[in-house]
Amino acid sequence: MLKDGCMTITMPKEVDHHCAEQLRKETDLLIGAYRIKRLIFDFSFTEFMDSSGIGVLIGRCKNMGYHGGEVEAANLNERVQKIFVVSGLHKIIPVTTGNSQE
């Protein structure tokens, strides 16, 4: 989903090493192609995430940093929230509730 330089990536049901590579490639392709300024990871459908997911998110943060953009995470369930807190990711990526672009 793309709107005024703001892109929302709908995260898969399970964010693990298995899906990390594809997620990373597709997101980077879109960031480069559409000059994204604001990237939102939407976790509405995500039930599971492990440290592979953290690698993907931090990687995209760095990538967006080079383009002068920002990254946010939205709609985390309790479990994904826990993963963010345990890893300290919530200090790097602002977490929002609801669909913040509307």
Partner: peptide, 15 residues
Amino acid sequence: EQERSGMGFAFMEAF
């Protein structure tokens, strides 16, 4: 280079 976060063992210990 594979964007591994280095958090694997820390997670196992935490959980």
